[in-house]
Measured scan of single mutants.
Amino acid sequence: MDTYKLILNGKTLKGETTTEAVDAATAEKVFKHAANEHGVHGHWTYDPETKTFTVTE
């Protein structure tokens, strides 16, 4: 398992979190669910070198 990071750049919610996942696709599902639960919808990017997802509203 690897550690993946999410950076939230929402209009009303900003922050960072991490998750352990077997691959980037699994981490993305976890992060998108969490972002949706917090009402953050926007443009997603992924940097494979740093294993970091970013969502920007």
Rank of each mutant, 00 (worst) to 15 (best):
M1S: 09
M1K: 12
M1G: 08
M1V: 10
D2H: 14
D2N: 14
D2W: 12
D2I: 13
D2L: 11
T3I: 13
Y4T: 02
Y4E: 02
Y4V: 01
Y4I: 01
Y4R: 02
K5C: 07
K5W: 09
L6K: 01
L6V: 04
L6R: 00
L6T: 01
L6Y: 02
L6M: 07
L6D: 02
I7Q: 04
I7D: 02
I7H: 04
L8F: 13
L8Q: 02
L8S: 03
N9P: 04
N9D: 10
N9L: 14
N9C: 15
N9S: 07
G10L: 15
G10V: 08
K11F: 14
T12R: 08
T12V: 11
T12L: 11
L13C: 15
L13D: 05
K14I: 11
K14D: 05
K14H: 11
K14F: 11
G15T: 15
G15F: 15
E16A: 08
E16R: 07
T17G: 07
T17I: 15
T17C: 15
T17P: 03
T18S: 11
T18A: 07
T18C: 11
T18I: 09
T18L: 08
T19Y: 11
T19W: 07
E20G: 05
E20T: 12
E20Y: 12
A21Q: 06
A21D: 02
V22E: 11
D23N: 09
D23S: 07
D23F: 03
A24H: 09
A25G: 08
A25C: 13
T26D: 09
T26P: 01
T26L: 05
T26R: 05
T26E: 13
T26S: 13
A27Y: 00
A27T: 00
A27F: 01
E28C: 15
E28I: 08
E28F: 15
E28Q: 09
E28N: 04
K29T: 09
K29R: 13
K29W: 09
K29C: 10
V30P: 01
V30Q: 09
V30W: 12
V30C: 07
V30R: 09
V30L: 12
V30I: 15
V30D: 05
V30S: 06
F31G: 00
F31D: 00
F31N: 00
F31R: 00
F31E: 00
K32I: 10
K32M: 10
H33R: 15
H33F: 11
H33K: 15
H33T: 12
H33E: 13
H33G: 09
A34F: 15
A34M: 15
A35T: 06
A35Q: 03
N36S: 13
N36W: 13
N36P: 03
E37K: 12
E37C: 13
E37P: 03
E37H: 11
H38L: 15
H38I: 15
H38P: 02
H38N: 10
H38Q: 14
H38T: 08
H38M: 15
V40W: 09
V40F: 12
V40M: 08
V40R: 03
H41L: 10
H41K: 12
H41D: 11
H41R: 12
H41V: 14
H41M: 11
G42W: 09
G42S: 02
G42N: 02
H43S: 13
H43N: 12
H43Q: 13
W44K: 00
W44R: 00
W44L: 03
W44P: 00
W44N: 00
T45M: 10
T45S: 13
T45Q: 09
T45R: 07
Y46F: 08
Y46E: 00
Y46D: 00
D47Q: 06
D47I: 05
P48V: 08
E49T: 13
E49I: 11
K51V: 02
T52K: 03
T52S: 04
T52L: 04
F53L: 01
F53Q: 00
T54S: 05
V55N: 02
V55R: 01
T56H: 08
T56C: 06
T56V: 07
T56K: 05
E57I: 07
E57H: 05
